[in-house]
Amino acid sequence: MSLLQVRDLSKAFGGVRAVDGIHFDLHEGELLAMIGPNGAGKSTTFNMVGGQLRASGGSIQLQGRELVGAKPRQICHLGVGRTFQIAATFASLTVLENTQMALLSHHKRLYHWWRPVRDQYREQALALLEQVGMAAHAERPCSELAYGDVKRVELAMALANDPRLLLMDEPTAGMGPQERNELMALTKRLVVERRMAVLFTEHSMDVVFAHADRMLVLARGRLIAEGDAHSIRNHPQVQQVYFGSGKTFERPPQEPQP
């Protein structure tokens, strides 16, 4: 059985159908990319799965539990974590304190102010930071970190919820090529080790083709292709949507020169 099942998912804003009958499955241990040009419906679909937007029609089920109509916090407590395009950390807090705060939220202990935060869930927070390679920076304020390291801290915070499904919105935005590939290789390792699944949106095709197990391609609110790297590279409609006639995905876009 699929971990996540999306069926006939739709979203209309007035007379505009931003998402029109999308369907897909996501399995445990899978890294699934959702790609498409601007305006394809990626963010709308992503936000419906996370509960930030309510679907106009269709179904989203997490292991048989319907998510349509549930609030983001309810979805979080069902085992869905999320990272954002702009990393969401507290810059003035240390790496360790940020992770402890995420654990306090997961355990619904945020309002127990009479107990010092530094004493709560410290070992669990350090274990999460070890998993993402940030334990050595535990006592540093997030404001001092390179952006790639901030993204790792955000990943540790998302893992504090012990998610079965992790939603990653543009996880490598603002990162250089090496940082991008290191973060996604880490994510893939965690998917396997923790037996969870990841749905992510991404504009960097080098990241998508190097790390995704499978891809969904959206255009104008509809799913136009689904498959592995080879099938997507050679899909005529995908080539047309991205590049027009005569071009392919054989080479990922080059990094802009400084």
Rank of each mutant, 00 (worst) to 15 (best):
H27P: 11
M1G: 15
H137S: 15
A225L: 11
R7W: 12
E139G: 15
L9C: 06
A125N: 09
E144F: 14
L96M: 07
L96A: 00
G133V: 03
L78F: 13
L223F: 07
F209P: 02
S59A: 15
G21W: 00
T94D: 06
F90G: 11
D20N: 10
R152I: 06
L165H: 02
P258G: 14
T201L: 15
M101H: 11
P258E: 11
A138N: 00
R118P: 12
L186E: 04
P256S: 13
A40H: 07
V68E: 06
A197E: 01
L104R: 06
V95M: 05
M184S: 04
T172N: 05
S10V: 08
Q120C: 10
L199N: 08
M134N: 02
E66C: 07
G58E: 03
D162I: 09
H106Y: 13
A197Q: 02
F243H: 00
A135D: 12
Q240F: 11
V80I: 08
R194D: 08
A197H: 05
T172I: 00
L9E: 00
V208E: 01
A18E: 03
R54F: 12
R222M: 06
G69E: 05
E202T: 08
Q63E: 15
P252M: 07
R214S: 07
L190T: 05
V207Q: 06
M175Q: 05
E250F: 13
G39L: 04
M184Y: 08
T99V: 15
V80L: 02
L126D: 00
L218G: 06
R109D: 13
L218C: 12
R65W: 06
A12I: 07
S56I: 01
G133M: 04
L183M: 00
H106I: 07
H235I: 02
K108E: 14
E123M: 01
Y111M: 13
R65V: 14
M134Q: 08
E255H: 12
Q100I: 03
H211N: 03
K151E: 04
